[in-house]
Design a protein around this nucleic acid. Structure first.
Length: 586
RNA sequence: GUGCCUGUAGCUCAGCUGGAUAGAGCGACAGACUCCGACUCUGUAGGCCGCAGGUUCGACUCCUGUCAGGCACACCA
């Protein structure tokens, strides 16, 4: 676990504290309470590699001018043997620090030595964290929102893994409750239509069940459906496949038996399809947690009892209510309806209880669409009532996606007239592009997805731009290797010739990967990694353009090749984190 | 009506717990290879950081108000 920026920053803090201590000992300043001060990385490199506002922060307690204090600190500070070679006072009293050339050399070697591990940190201290994402209903295909949620959830999980957490990915399968009833009803209605006289002729015209389904779907006059069911053609396909097996045998059964048989037939197919589609999207879950297990194990009843015991429930108008308003929710919520059936809220509480108590995860993360944001306060309220710290549940809210094509909003797929599915999206654009683009913006911002740009093979397309940088480095290394130039490890002193501004900037940036990983993990924001990779590619191209390798002196050639290897390592690590391909040739 | 989220360059977006002259990409305009991958790079133009107050040495950042857009406000999930 190596973090060059963090180490240097900590070292600098130590140097400053020692300087202040020396000043106090010499009686130059009073041993006043030391104010908090910052060490930051200036945006403008002429302001040094690090800067501190310590002199400004001391101005008040020491009753002295910031610049004067800064001068005293600069006299007292001892840089010999440190990672810093120079200080400077600037502006209203900032003290700017410049890293030594050796520090830069060490970074290059550290990155190469750590290889595929470089960038990992131990910040998470192996705490168990469960990331639940997508959790699409198994009653139909996944939509664009699921596509975004999938990319964000999967990459966030990777980022947390890199930051030292013990991460599990989970899909919550809503295989119980109301929407399953609705699913059964929809299937049954379609099955009944298929078994009717009207359909007999239509069936003869189609050899594929998909085309047949589309025809039935399009002909809503002949085959009307109520509003409160699933209307998609996928339901018709299931019903027809079921019919192909059983013909109209189930029309003699009761409605309940029929619906049950249809559900039992179609649900596993849908769940398998979810798993397959997400697998193609490179998402592999550790667990597929079924809602039905909560019902079957009695966990739902159990959580109702626990809530009753907590004293935060009451009965009114025949229903059981939860006093969520006492925990900041805008109003109380119904747990058990007057008809005795629990609302969806109860199994959800049981599910989160299961995550945090039964299975003992330290933290649970839910990735939810913005349309579910109102749900967060009540879930946190329920956790509190159960004696669970609400901070252990973290919800990442993601805003809606706007698909753009030819400069226009692209809403419906032409074929079905339905919302674009994950499957059709991945037919249109490469998986790399989908995963990358969905992680280009932070979750909680409205996002325009430019489909044209995603398939474009040029530098305008950020994912190509990054992959190209990697392929370019591989090519360079191949060329030198084929010319017999050995790429052996270099000493820090030998790397000290990397002094060009482009080289130092590039090294500074690769040094910041561990910090970026920590920051992305802390904010639950994998887009920081995506943008990091783009900037790294850009800095590499600039370096490559300005600093020629071929034709330079032997020592410089070797040093620059070392830098190339370091950059390649970092590019690969970031793309691996995002599960995006890292081509050696394009 | 109430709550949450979002307003930064023509467009899409960064801006870390308040810091120095507000950034990037695209688009526009002007340039750079007989030379390591031009799928690249360089430069120019473009901003009352939605608006108005407040907090302080200092505010895109924090607080209050206000305007605009998105979303949510079920004994649906």
């Amino acid at each position: 676990m190596i973090n060059p920026i963090k180490s240097a920053s900590a070292e600098l803090r130590e140097l400053l504290m020692n300087a202040l201590g020396r000043m106090t000992a010499e009686g130059k300043i009073e041993a006043a309470l030391l104010p908090t001060f910052n060490i930051e990385i200036p945006a403008d490199k002429s302001h040094g590699d690090f800067a501190s506002n310590i002199a400004m922060a001391c101005a008040k307690p020491l009753k002295s001018a910031p610049r004067k204090i800064a001068e005293m600190i600069c006299e007292a500070i001892i840089l010999d043997g440190s990672s810093f070679e120079r200080v400077e006072i600037a502006g209203p009293g900032f003290i700017n620090f410049f890293l030594s050339q050796t520090w830069f050399s060490e970074v290059v070697n550290d990155v190469i030595d750590n290889g595929s591990e470089y960038g990992r940190t131990d910040t998470g201290r192996n705490k168990k964290i469960l990331v639940e994402f997508v959790s699409a209903n198994p009653t139909g295909p996944m939509h664009i929102g699921n596509a975004r949620g999938g990319a964000i959830g999967d990459c966030l999980s990777s980022v947390l893994d890199w930051a030292g957490y013990s991460v599990s990915r989970e899909f919550y399968v809503n295989d119980a409750g109301n929407q399953v009833q609705k699913f059964g009803k929809s299937l049954d209605l379609r099955y009944s239509q298929i078994c009717s006289e009207k359909c007999a002729d239509l069936m003869k015209n189609y050899t594929s069940n998909e085309e047949f389904a589309q025809a039935v779907y399009d002909n809503s006059n002949e085959f009307p459906m109520p509003d409160d069911v699933y209307l998609g053609a996928d339901i018709i396909v299931h019903a027809k496949n079921f019919y192909d097996i059983h013909v109209d045998k189930y029309m003699n059964e009761t409605e309940e038996v029929r619906r049950d048989a249809l559900c039992t037939y179609a649900m596993p197919i849908n769940i398998q399809k979810l798993e397959d589609d997400l697998g193609k999207y490179r998402i592999k879950y550790d667990t597929w947690f079924r809602e039905s297990t909560l019902h079957n194990s009695g966990a739902v009843e159990e959580v109702i009892e626990l809530l009753k015991k907590s004293g935060y429930t009451y009965e009114e108008e025949g229903a059981l209510w939860f006093k969520s308003s006492e925990f900041g929710d805008e109003k109380d919520r119904v747990l058990v309806r007057a008809n005795g059936i629990p609302t969806y809220f109860v199994p959800d509480i049981a599910y989160h209880y299961n995550k945090l108590c039964t299975r003992g995860f330290d933290t649970a993360i839910d990735i939810l669409g913005a349309d579910h944001h109102g749900y967060v306060p009540r879930m946190k309220a329920a956790l509190q009532a159960l004696g669970i710290a609400p901070e252990r549940l973290n919800v990442v809210i993601m805003q809606m996606v706007l698909l753009m094509k030819n400069g226009e909003v692209y809403k419906l797929s032409k074929r079905s007239g339905k919302a674009v599915t994950l499957e059709t999206l991945l037919d249109e654009i490469p998986i790399d592009a989908a995963r990358f683009f969905f992680n280009l913006r932070e979750a909680n911002s409205h996002f325009e997805f430019d489909l044209d740009l995603a398939i474009e093979q040029s530098s305008k397309n950020p994912v190509y731009y990054v992959q190209y940088a990697h392929a370019r480095i591989c090519s360079i290394l191949r060329n030198f290797e084929s010319e017999g130039i050995a790429l052996s490890k270099m000493s820090n002193t030998a790397l000290n010739i990397l002094t060009a501004p482009e080289e130092k900037e590039l090294i500074r940036f690769i040094a910041s990967l561990p910090n970026t990983v920590d920051s992305a993990a802390k904010d639950y924001d994998p887009s920081k990694i995506t943008r990091y990779s783009v900037e790294l590619a850009s800095l590499f191209h600039k370096f490559y353009d300005k600093c020629r390798i071929k034709g330079a002196e032997d020592e410089l050639v070797s040093a620059r090749l070392s830098l190339c290897i370091a950059v390649k390592t970092v590019l690969k690590n970031t793309l691996d984190m995002l599960k995006i391909e890292c081509p050696e040739k394009m």
